[in-house]
Each structure stands twice: as structure tokens, then as C-alpha cells.
């Protein structure tokens, strides 16, 4: 059943990496090199990360929780900046909006991605390769080009509108500058990753399992709900977590395709920083965004460190 496709192997290797790791250190005590050497090998990337992510991030957090009094010049530990955030109805609306857009996007990704992954897993068609290339294609399109293309494809009097006009449909309402516009673009952007991981998850379900279910008379739907879905919860959770992290802080697509208000957090913090000269406010939003992503990150970590049930 394995196809000799190079791309498929790449595809699989990536997906496997993202679904399977990190397994507990294989029972390899025998050839265990000294721990110290391990630290030497991981030192360069860890150092880069500490210097360029952790150090500035901690600085940002500190800046938001220590508030200096304008009169006395004294600095005190205070959550004042965060309280201010939650008291502002606009910012609250932005946060809610971001959560909703993220959930809608991830939901749509499952609706679109799961059938595609099922198809790629089970189809024996020659066109499966083409389908795979098409689903991978968005990997090679940067966000700004996507926004550029979608405005002209989906916009009023865009290509899609024109096509509808040719077949006689009028009254098209464009998703450009609407929340739907953001969702469409983000789904488009994240399809490759979603399909990649879900296909890998489905491939771990062995044909024999499905065949034996069929032998005892299970219908297609039963196989789907009783076997495929439960056995792919792990990859589904991974898709959920990493997509949430990727979508939540999005900037370019929501900025160019979304409505003026409410806006997603990525846009909102840029605006606070750039237009309102509110550096602390922007950092507060950044830290909050990070905390939410970090919570999802913890879920992710728990998913992948849990031993597989097999």
C-alpha cells in the first residue's frame, strides 16, 4: 500500500515527527552517551532561544507587572495593566472576537481537513497524488500574497463575483472586510499542516483493524465513529493545539482582510503600540495572548507525552 512517492514520504515524515514526538528515550541505555555531551550538543539552539525569545519575553512580562507611580517614581508590583485591559469593553470585544475566529477557523479546518485526510488515506485513485499536491500548495504561499490574491478573488467585482455573474448569479456578498474573510484566509493557510497530521494519524490505523470490523458487519459510518475517530484523537488534539497557537496571534491576514472593529489580538496590539503609543498596553496584550497560547501549549505537551494507547 505504500506509494513510492517521494513527496508522500516527506509528508509522512513531517507528520510522524509532529504526532509521534517525543517518545520516551528509547530503551537505549546501552549506548547512552554521557549526559554532558548531550548538553553540549543542544547548547547552541537553546542559547539562541534563551537570548532572543526568553530574555526579551521576560523583560516584557516584567515591564507589564511593575507599575511606576508618576509622582513618587516608585515601582510596585501590580496587576493594574491587566485589570485595565479587562475593563476596556473594546479590548474585551477584541479578545472575544479572537477566540471566536480561532475556534471557527479550527472547526472549519477539521470539517475540511478530516475528509481530505480520509481521502488521502484510503483512496487508491491516481488522482490522489494531485489532491495531495493541491493540499500542500498553501505551504508555498506567504500570507501577504494570500491576502493580495483573496482580495482580488473574493472581493466585490473580484474574480469569484465575476464567475458567478457569468453563470447568472447576482447579489454576491463579499467576505472581504468581514470576519468570514479572516476565517477563509486562515483556513486556507493552515490546510497543509492539518491534512498532514490527520493523514499521518489515520495511517496509524492499520488496514487489518478496519477489515476485521467490516467482516463483523460494521457499516462505513460505524467504522468512522467507532474506530477512526477514537484512534485519531491524538492527532486531532495535536492539530487543534498547534492550529490554535498559529491562528490566535495572526496579524497579516486579519489586518488586511478583516473588519475595522472588532479586531484580532495581533492587530489590536499593533494598533495600541503604533497608533496609541501605548507600549505597555501593547505588551500587556502580547503577554495575555502568550498566556492563552501557553495554556494550549500545555494541553499539547500533555497530549504528546501521554503514552499511546496501543
Amino acid at each position: 500500500m505504500t506509494r513510492p512517492y517521494n513527496r508522500k514520504k516527506i509528508f509522512m515524515a513531517t507528520a510522524r515527527a509532529l504526532t509521534a514526538q517525543p517518545a520516551p528515550p528509547a530503551a537505549a541505555k546501552r549506548r547512552d552517551l554521557s549526559g554532558l555531551f548531550g548538553y553540549v550538543l543542544i547548547a547552541p539552539p537553546v542559547a539562541i532561544m534563551l537570548l532572543l525569545i526568553f530574555y526579551p519575553a521576560i523583560e516584557a512580562v516584567i515591564e507589564t507587572i511593575f507599575v511606576s507611580d508618576a509622582q513618587t517614581g516608585q515601582t510596585t508590583l501590580s496587576l493594574q495593566n491587566y485589570i485595565a485591559f479587562f475593563q476596556d469593553p473594546i479590548l474585551r470585544a477584541n479578545l472575544t472576537f479572537t477566540v471566536l475566529v480561532t475556534l471557527a477557523t479550527v472547526f472549519m479546518l477539521f470539517v475540511v481537513g478530516y475528509p481530505l485526510a480520509m481521502y488521502l488515506r484510503f483512496s487508491k485513485s491516481r488522482l490522489a497524488g494531485t489532491v495531495q499536491v493541491l493540499t500542500l500548495f498553501p505551504l508555498f504561499v506567504p500570507g501577504v500574497i494570500l491576502a493580495f490574491a483573496l482580495i482580488r478573488f473574493l472581493g466585490t467585482h473580484g474574480m469569484f463575483d465575476t464567475l458567478l455573474g457569468i453563470v447568472g448569479i447576482s447579489g454576491y456578498r463579499t467576505p472581504y472586510l468581514q470576519p468570514q474573510g479572516i476565517v477563509i484566509a486562515l483556513v486556507w493557510e493552515h490546510i497543509p499542516f492539518t491534512v498532514l497530521v490527520l493523514t499521518a494519524g489515520l495511517r496509524q490505523v492499520e488496514d487489518a483493524v478496519i477489515e476485521s470490523a467490516r467482516d463483523v458487519g460494521a457499516s462505513g459510518w460505524q467504522i468512522f465513529t467507532r474506530i477512526l475517530l477514537p484512534l485519531t484523537t491524538r492527532s486531532a488534539l495535536i492539530v487543534f493545539c498547534l492550529n490554535v497557537i498559529g491562528v490566535f496571534g495572526a496579524f497579516t491576514l486579519p489586518y488586511l482582510l478583516g473588519p475595522a472593529q472588532p479586531m484580532m489580538m495581533g492587530v489590536s496590539m499593533q494598533q495600541a503600540f503604533n497608533n496609541y503609543q501605548d507600549r505597555i498596553g501593547a505588551l500587556t496584550q502580547a503577554v495575555l495572548t502568550f498566556l492563552i497560547c501557553a495554556a494550549v501549549g500545555v494541553l499539547y505537551v500533555r497530549t504528546i507525552t501521554r503514552p499511546r494507547e496501543r
Binding site: M49, L52, I53, Y55, P56, A60, F251, L283, A286, Y300
Partner: peptide, 20 residues
């Protein structure tokens, strides 16, 4: 350490650039 690399994707980048 391995999992901490997730942080490179989770912190909004723009908040970091000025300090960097």
C-alpha cells in the same frame, strides 16, 4: 528543553523585536 522550543512560536513576535 525539547518542548520549550514551542515558545518560539507562542510569544507574539512583535512584542520582542524592540528588546531584541
Amino acid at each position: 528543553f525539547l518542548l520549550s522550543f514551542l515558545a518560539t512560536n507562542a510569544f507574539p513576535r512583535f512584542g520582542l523585536y524592540v528588546s531584541i
